[in-house]
Amino acid sequence: MSKGLTLTIIFQANSLNYGEGMGNVSELKKLSRSNGHTYTFASRQCLRYDIVRLGNELFNWNLQTVVKNNKTIQFRPDASIRESEEMDLFGYMKTVKTVGSITREAVARLTHAISLEPYRSDMDFLNNMGLARRIDEDNNLANIEQHFSFYTYTVTIDLDRIGEDKEISLSSQEKAQRVTQLLTILNLLNRNIRGRQENLSPLFLIGGMYDIANPFFYGRVKLDSKNGGFALSPSLLHSALEKKYGAFTVMDQTHMGLTKEVFDNEEELTHLLPEGQVHTVQGMFDFLIDEVNRYFVVNE
C-alpha cells in the first residue's frame, strides 16, 4: 500500500525573504489579494535552502554535487540520489552529453511560507553611523521593510519514491533515515538573514501519514486576530478533516501538534481530533518518526 506524509506548519518570525528592492529601499517578497490585503512570504526555494543547509550542518548531507556546465550551474552529471540526500528529496535537472536533460521530480514538495497577518507597510530606517564616525564621514542611509507575523507552509512527501530512481533502489534503512532527518530538520528549522537568526520551528502542525500523498491542510489555515489575541479557524480545519478517500476520512489518520499558550482557542483546536491524536509539537515529531521507521521496516 502506498503512503504519503503531509504536514501544514505554522511558525512565527520576522522579515524572512527580500526581493530586488528599489534605490535604498529593501523590499520584502509580497503577494496581493483582491480584498486589498498584502501578505509577505518566504519562497519555497528559500525554505529548501535552509533545509539543505541544516541537513549539511546536522547530518553531513553531501553538498559537493554541483558543477558549472557551459555557464549553467547544475548538479554534476555523475551525481545521483545514492550520494545526495538533496537530489533524492527535492529532485534535480542535469544535462548529460549524448543524452540531453535528465530530470527527476521532487519527492518532498514545499509550498511558500505565507504570512497569516497582512503587511502594514512597517519600515526600519538604517544607517552606518558607527563606521562613518570612525573616519569622520557622512552616514549611508537605507530603509528596510519589516513584518513580524505568523507564517504557514506545507510539505508533502511521497514515501514510495524516496530512494528510488531508475536503477537505483536504496535500502529501507537509508530511506527511513532520510525522511526522519528531514522531519528533524523541520522541527529545528531556522533562517540566517541580515544579522538575525529567525526561528522557523513549528508552533502548530497538523497532518500525518496517509494512503495518498496529498496536501490536505494547505489553504485550510486562517488566523483570527480579533480582541487582541490570535485564534485559528476550526471550521476550515474541520472541512479538511471530513474529506473521504477510500474507506477512510482524513480525520482517521490525522494528528496535531500544538504549543500551549499561543492561540486563544487552544482548547477548541484540541477537540477537533480524538485525544490520542493530539500531541505537543515534539510529541508529534516523535510519533511521525516512529511511523516512518515502522512503515519502511514493514515494506522492506
Score class of each variant (00 low, 15 high):
Leu7Tyr: 03
Leu7Cys: 08
Leu16Pro: 06
Met22Val: 14
Lys29Cys: 09
Arg33Asn: 11
Thr38Val: 15
Asn56Gly: 05
Glu57Trp: 05
Phe59Thr: 09
Asn60Ile: 00
Trp61Phe: 07
Gln64Asn: 11
Thr65Tyr: 04
Lys68Val: 13
Asn70Thr: 04
Thr72Gly: 00
Asp78Gln: 08
Arg82Tyr: 05
Glu86Arg: 07
Gly91Val: 14
Gly91Tyr: 13
Lys94Phe: 14
Lys97Ala: 15
Lys97Arg: 14
Glu105Lys: 13
Ala106Glu: 15
Ala108Leu: 11
His112Ala: 14
Ser121Leu: 09
Asp122Ser: 13
Asp124Ser: 11
Leu126Trp: 04
Asp138Tyr: 09
Ala142Gly: 06
Phe148Arg: 02
Phe150Val: 02
Phe150Gly: 03
Asp158Tyr: 03
Glu164Leu: 10
Asp165His: 14
Lys175Asp: 02
Val179Trp: 01
Thr180Val: 08
Leu186Pro: 02
Arg191Glu: 06
Asn192Thr: 04
Gln197His: 09
Asn199Trp: 11
Pro202His: 09
Pro202Asn: 09
Pro202Gly: 14
Asn214Met: 12
Asn214Pro: 00
Phe216Asn: 02
Tyr218Ile: 13
Tyr218Glu: 15
Lys226His: 04
Leu232Ile: 07
Ser235Pro: 00
Tyr245Asp: 01
Gly246Cys: 04
Phe248Cys: 05
Met251Ser: 12
Thr259Ala: 13
Glu261Lys: 12
Val262His: 02
His271Ser: 09
Gly276Glu: 10
Val281Tyr: 09
Gln282Phe: 06
Phe287Asp: 02
Asn293Phe: 00
Arg294Gly: 01
